[in-house]
């Protein structure tokens, strides 16, 4: 294995991107991703906050402490992972983190590993999804993505600029990818317009250092209020409105998440006033 450290976008040529490595390193070690060439993109990806633009290389720790960052995003970063992980984790890497589904992490031959079934749906799924779960029942673990989805963030890559929502897709039989990013495409920046008010509420099973059981981000702008959820669907999940919670399709052991989501959505909206 080799490690390249390009200093400009022009030098990019294949390989597996690595920023903080919090996802890449364990996945490499487990043989879930493989690479001959690792490309350390820290010299390429912008870092820091300028106006509404956030460099994809900014760490969650930096975002958590930056008063210019909208509340929902700041709180999502503050409650994510552990302090050391937040110090290492880049925003871009966070948006692209893989599922925490234990079957997937343990390499059960499930659909996301190009297999034929969803082991979680038939098996142990108490932490899994309540929406969009008929093909793969995994629950997207990013607090940050839910916050950005509620904030209607836009993503600028080396090739295009898209709404954050367009970064994600539900996997299906024909195409099992969960993002629309193409090979070699690098996320450079995320842009968010300052909302009138925003908030992030997170249900965890300990007070810190826990993935979202259910995370609820809400943001009010001139155009209305957006609500997005973490931990409830294979991808960050945008609700049409609070009553959308009732359209959940929980698995037998994820019904509890609907109750939690309902309560947190109500509270988030109340907080926005």
């Amino acid at each position: 294995m080799e490690l390249l450290r390009p200093s400009s976008v022009d030098e990019l040529d294949g390989g597996l991107f690595i920023h903080g490595g919090t996802e890449v390193v364990p996945l490499l070690r487990d043989g879930i991703v493989r690479a001959e060439t690792l490309v350390d993109v820290r010299g390429v990806v912008p870092r820091g906050v300028t106006g509404g633009r956030i460099g994809a290389g900014t760490t969650l720790a930096e975002l958590e402490a930056d008063a210019r960052v909208p509340d929902a995003l700041r709180e999502a970063c503050r409650l994510a992972a552990s302090p050391q992980l937040r110090n290492m984790s880049s925003l871009g890497g966070n948006l692209l983190q893989s599922t925490r589904c234990w079957y997937w992490r343990l390499k059960f031959p499930c659909r996301l590993h190009d297999g034929e079934r969803c082991h979680a749906a038939d098996g142990e799924h108490r932490e899994h999804a309540i929406f969009g779960n008929d093909y793969c029942a995994s629950a997207h673990p990013s607090d940050v993505a839910a916050a950005l989805l509620a904030l209607d963030g836009r993503v600028r890559t080396t090739r295009r600029e898209i709404a954050l929502a367009e970064l994600y897709r539900l996997p299906d039989e024909a195409d099992r990818r969960m993002t629309t990013l193409e090979p070699g495409e690098l996320i450079l920046e995320v842009e968010v317009q300052p909302p009138a008010a925003s908030t992030y509420l997170k249900a965890m099973d300990r007070k810190r250092w826990s993935f979202p059981q259910v995370g609820v981000a809400a943001a009010r702008t001139g155009g209305g209020t957006r609500i997005a959820l973490a931990g409830v669907a294979p991808v960050p999940w945008l609700l049409d409105g609070p009553e959308d919670v009732e359209r959940a399709t929980p698995l037998p052991r994820t019904a509890w998440k609907v109750d939690v989501a309902r309560a947190l959505v109500r509270r988030a909206l109340a907080e926005l006033g």
Partner: peptide, 26 residues
């Protein structure tokens, strides 16, 4: 050895990180 416990915490330029998932070369 996979970034979950903090036993391996060291500082890089004063910032605590997990040395078990930090590539030495980076």
């Amino acid at each position: 050895n996979e970034g979950h416990c903090g036993a391996c915490t060291v500082m890089i330029d004063g910032v605590p990180v997990l040395s078990c998932i930090t590539l030495a070369h980076s």
